[in-house]
Each structure stands twice: as structure tokens, then as C-alpha cells.
Simulated scan of single mutants.
Amino acid sequence: MQSVRPADELFFIHSFFVTKLEVTFSPEDIVREYQKRGTMENYIKEAKNSFRLDQMNSHSFQVNEVRMMLSLLT
């Protein structure tokens, strides 16, 4: 469990992590890894919603990659 109180806030923000990671990781390392994962999920969601990259028509990875690059250029 992680509890953080931002500087200008009255209440704490509590975070709970349930994981199967090895005991060798420190709690700070686990929190850092989950924060990285959350950031990456936000990038993926942004790509799907903003650039319509969730609608690929081909089964070929290369064709989809070219279409993605072209849509990012326009």
C-alpha cells in the first residue's frame, strides 16, 4: 500500500498493488514499474482514440505498420 498526500491537498491518495512479482523487488521498485505500465497504457489509449490506430484492416504486420506511419504523417 502506498499513501501520498500532495502538497496542497487535505486528503491522502491511497494506492494498493496486488502482484505476483518476486520478493526481491522493493516496494518502491514495484510502484515505479506499475507507474510506467500506466503511462504506457495511456499512450496506447491516446493512439487508439486520436489516430484511429485501433482499426487495422490487414492481417499483415508490415501493411498495418505502413498505414500507421502514413496516418501519423497526415
Rank of each mutant, 00 (worst) to 15 (best):
P27W: 05
V23C: 09
N64Q: 03
R5D: 07
S60V: 00
S3V: 02
M40I: 14
A47N: 07
I13S: 06
E9A: 12
S71A: 01
L72Y: 04
F51I: 06
P6H: 03
I13Y: 07
E65W: 06
Y43E: 13
R67W: 02
F61V: 03
N49R: 08
L70C: 04
M1T: 04
A7P: 03
V63N: 03
M56V: 06
P27E: 05
S60I: 07
R37K: 11
K20C: 03
R52V: 04
M68Y: 05
S15M: 06
I13F: 02
Q62S: 09
V66Q: 08
L73H: 06
L21R: 09
L21K: 09
A47V: 03
T39Q: 15
F12G: 03
N42C: 14
N57W: 01
F16Q: 11
E46D: 10
F11G: 02
I13G: 00
N57A: 07
S3E: 06
K48L: 12
T74F: 05
E41R: 11
T39V: 13
R5V: 09
E22L: 08
V18D: 13
M40P: 00
T24A: 13
L72N: 04
R32T: 11
Q55H: 10
I30T: 13
R67C: 06
M69Q: 05
S26V: 04
R52T: 04
R67V: 00
M68F: 02
R67F: 02
T74C: 06
Y43D: 15
E9V: 00
R37D: 07
D54R: 04
L70H: 00
T39E: 14
E41Y: 07
M69Y: 02
A47T: 08
M40C: 10
L73T: 10
K45Y: 08
M1V: 05
